[in-house]
Write a protein that binds this DNA or RNA. Structure first.
Lengths: 226, 226
DNA sequence: TTATAATATAATTAAATTGAGGATTATTTA
DNA sequence: TAAATAATCCTCAATTTAATTATATTATAA
């Protein structure tokens, strides 16, 4: 099946997660070319010869979705020889959590946010890649409050808790969550309140230092993993 | 410098760590070809077209060092366009902790264990790769007692503590270490004792389930990282 | 005006964990 | 036999975690 003398093709693929309408969503693009033409896929493309992997991920994401200036973290490299139905393509996957308000997605029929818990049929092994990015996100969330990356610049503690609950897939106690989270280094209480759509307006908070060196998210029970 | 139409070359490189003579060591091979001919490097080579990345890592490690049948974990993919002085080579790095007794290293002038804290000049970015594998190993060690992978099948708690201390780079209290580690799921006390070279012989322990789903290593203070 | 819903704060509790160290026992060597 | 050393056992206080009870505040909806 394979010509062993040929060199490989390498792509990068990016998993972009956000919260919209109380749902965890992932940014997908509709494939314009074969294979899997017309199927949804995470944004990806070929790495140029003189291009760093990180740079390629940023460039391709920008080209396909107009999303720019975000922190992409390398996730995993998927190299199953059969993951691409035509040729041998190894892909280095990246992921990011972003604020929907921060990016300027060209929303077309070919670029859209999809619920992570209700994905359409995806091209290649992209479903597996998304699942793995969720696993990694949960692990990161246990170590530090990265959920702030998903929230607006100003957010309520209830919104933050909701983000945690969406990612971790479980309910958390409001009082203990609050008690713990307000100890987080970098979190600043504002003198502003949510435009109460209903009921009592909630205080807004913000994160001061983006490169936060904060506390472990102790209010999430740590899983033992090996 | 680069021909943008050419496809990339992809290699795998493996960081194999063990403890020998109370030192953390890494398995290195002397390069037989240019570039960096004669320089020490971590074992690595080209991925075949029909070969899975994991399989390639295993094959190449076996070919170069005779080390076989170990659990290699993917570490990171290094893709700096200038990491290879001649062509564009992206490398997917793997790492493993092994028991020196379990493997049959062909010890030649070209294959040898080197102290991690006293490395020779290395080819490519291999020093960086080794450093990153140490960082990852420490993170893993904080989550679960992977250090057992470094120990003989039967080991004393002092040996285990020494492994932790070598990896974490700090001293631990003997009594507290013992108190915590004996709670680890899968650790079994044996009715055997070390062949006391001198002083009181220590009890031997073993790990029952290799695929242990054990407790977090609580006796290592967790670092906050973001 | 009242019921309701969400935010907010305080305080209590048991259990578990952490981190430090005292004290004892076993074994070898001088 | 005594000194030295390693292994082992045990105690304790401070802290953290997780669950819970209780109460007050501020808005909307009926």
């Amino acid at each position: 099946m394979f010509n062993e003398t040929k060199t490989h093709e390498i792509t990068v693929d990016t998993v972009i997660l956000t919260i919209k309408n109380d749902e965890l969503k992932v940014l997908l693009v509709k494939r314009e070319n074969e294979p899997f033409k017309g199927k949804w896929a995470i944004p990806g493309g070929y790495v140029r010869m003189s291009e760093d992997l990180d740079a390629a991920a940023m460039r391709i994401l920008k080209e396909k979705t107009n999303v720019d200036n975000i922190y992409l973290e390398q996730l995993y490299t998927f190299g199953d020889p059969l993951r691409h139905p035509v040729s041998r393509v190894i892909t280095c996957a990246y992921f990011a959590l972003i604020r929907a308000e921060d990016v300027d997605v060209i929303s077309t029929d070919n670029v859209a946010w999809h619920k992570v818990n209700d994905l359409p049929a995806l091209a290649f092994d992209h479903k597996e890649i998304i699942q793995y990015s969720l696993k990694r996100t949960r692990e990161r969330l246990e170590m530090c409050p990265v959920a702030y990356q998903l929230l607006n610049e100003k957010f309520t503690l209830t919104e933050m808790q909701k983000a945690y609950e969406l990612i971790m897939g479980k309910k958390l106690d409001k009082r203990n969550f609050r008690k713990k989270v307000i100890q987080t280094e970098g979190l600043r209480e504002l003198d502003e309140f949510s435009k109460s759509t209903s009921k009592r307006p909630a205080r807004l908070y913000t994160f001061d230092n983006i490169r936060l060196n904060s506390k472990r998210a102790h209010f999430i029970k740590k899983e033992k993993k090996c």
